[in-house]
Design a protein around this nucleic acid. Structure first.
Ligand code: SF4
Ligand code: SF4
Lengths: 144, 144
DNA sequence: CGGTATTAAGAGTCTCTTGTCTTAATATAT
DNA sequence: ATATATTAAGACAAGAGACTCTTAATACCG
């Protein structure tokens, strides 16, 4: 799997928040509501979203009418920011084969091709924002 | 991580076998020898290589002068065959975001870009064979 | 035949990821 | 103040992946 479960959950939840914020004009969405609609464990999702608030991608508010919201506009939050916060960036720097002692200095025949594709993937996640995804994601695309 | 540990070990071991076969003209290489040179657990490597022999990518022979060897020429064994045998092909068919209910029929803005890169990656591993890699891999590139 | 080298098979262990549960902290409303 | 809604934090449990160990099967050699 390319990303951890937590990472894909984080992306789905952030996307739902983006959709709900614009569609319903609310500032904070309770995590329980997100978990219900995404059919995910509330507690697990809570923990993952704590990582996003820690990374200042989202912000949270406790108490009644509290919940979680985007820390900035949806078009300022790229997928790479979420991926980086949850899974780290090693996917985009490590080798697919995990070999040591090699790399730029002593590349195998795969190296150029691999690092190019890795870079393309990275750029794809950099330029895709929550706004990009939210624009045509209908509500029932979220459930498992 | 893109691949499981077992998968990268399988690739390294198969590559070492390819190198040793051509360089030293031996037909079977003992797994112990591979494990030592790659600094991997003998028993674990044994189990992984069993998957490759099961998949008819390698063939094994027991007893003295036994070991493991490629089941066909190194240029007939592509990385995708090894990857498919050990980790399966789900990486190349599943979505990066793991969303359901979507795909070709109802693609998100990521879909086209993602499936294109996924396809390129797959083609890269299809056309890269053990022979491709073996041609310029020096012996000390194998260790961790 | 008996000893040794080697892979095959499978049970067992350790560790990391994923998920659950409980308690604490904070905010609101009455 | 007290009750309630909500996130924060952390202990705990279940599962999967990674690794270890033991025993069996097979092949060779003397
Ligand atoms: S040279 Fe090959 S094995 Fe080494 S890091 Fe590059 S792609 Fe990976
Ligand atoms: S439409 Fe988007 S989320 Fe769905 S499978 Fe394609 S890339 Fe993944």
């Amino acid at each position: 799997m390319l990303f951890s479960k937590g990472c894909t959950y984080a992306i789905r939840a952030a996307l739902l928040v983006a959709v709900k914020e614009t569609r319903e004009g609310r500032k904070f969405i309770p995590i329980r509501e997100l978990a219900d609609e995404l059919d995910l464990s509330f507690h697990f999702l809570t923990k993952i979203l704590q990582v996003l608030t820690e990374a200042e991608i989202m912000e949270s508010f406790r108490g009644p009418n509290g919940g979680i919201g985007l820390a900035r506009e949806a078009n300022k939050i790229s997928l790479i920011q979420i991926i980086s916060a949850v899974d780290g960036m090693s996917l985009f720097s490590e080798c697919a084969l995990g070999l040591p002692d090699c790399g730029e200095a002593k590349p195998c025949p795969l190296h150029q091709s691999w690092s190019k594709r890795r870079e393309e993937l990275k750029r794809m996640f950099e330029k895709t924002t929550l706004a990009t995804l939210a624009q045509d994601f209908s509500k029932n695309s979220f459930r498992n």
